[in-house]
């Protein structure tokens, strides 16, 4: 069964946004631009996660989740102490993509800052979700692992999309090139220890 969670906007880690934008933490120079970006982006952010819990069997490089399986040495290593795993997809919504597109031609400086803000938002969402899962399931977890990490092929996106039905649950779609729309989105597998 696939579950859905909605999140309010967690506080913005400004330092982290500036880091993503490739700048040093210089509030004096970038503070105003960042403020503008946060104010404009806020309304359009729609933070959602859909997820499902699977039993995991590891056989050498093969990680078998029942409904799907993937071959990856690195993921197998990551999940070696786990009998179950949470497979999830998270998105910050289309609003921020629209803003990035808007400023892409009008004011690329803002587009760059919004990109960075989006990256920070989706990471913050994943952190919040993973924290909740730990609490709800009263367990320890492994660091989340996404398609494209290590030797986990990007094509495993297809499996994750098909078991989670992301389009229907959170409006997240997969492009032919295995990238996601909305772009500020993450799919990942998080092992549950024990």
């Amino acid at each position: 069964m696939v579950f859905t969670k909605f999140y309010e906007n967690p506080p913005v880690d400004r330092k982290e946004v500036l880091r993503y934008a490739g700048c040093r933490d210089e509030e004096a120079v970038f503070g105003k631009l960042l403020d503008e970006c946060i104010a404009e982006a806020e309304e359009g952010l729609s933070l959602k996660v859909c997820y499902s819990v699977f039993d995991v069997k590891i056989r050498a490089e093969l990680c078998d989740f029942g409904a799907f399986s993937v071959k990856s040495k690195d993921l197998a290593e990551n999940l070696k102490d786990c009998k179950r795993a949470v497979v999830f997809a998270a998105t910050a919504g289309v609003g921020i993509d629209r803003l990035i597109a808007k400023y892409g031609s009008l004011a690329p400086s803002k587009a760059v800052m919004l990109q960075a803000l989006g990256a920070e938002r989706i990471e913050a969402l994943c952190d919040a979700f993973c924290g909740d899962i730990k609490k709800e399931m009263n367990c320890e977890t492994k660091p989340r692992f996404s398609p494209g990490y290590g030797d986990l092929d990007l094509s495993s996106q297809k499996d994750i999309f098909s078991v989670l039905n992301c389009e229907k649950h959170i409006g997240l779609t997969l492009n032919d090139s295995m990238l996601m729309s909305p772009s500020k989105s993450v799919t990942a597998i998080m092992g549950i220890i024990g």
Binding site: A21, R24, F30, V112
Partner: peptide, 11 residues
């Protein structure tokens, strides 16, 4: 100079 600064000047 960082990218956003370069861009602000360019804009």
């Amino acid at each position: 100079v960082y990218l956003p600064q370069l861009l602000i000047s360019a804009e």
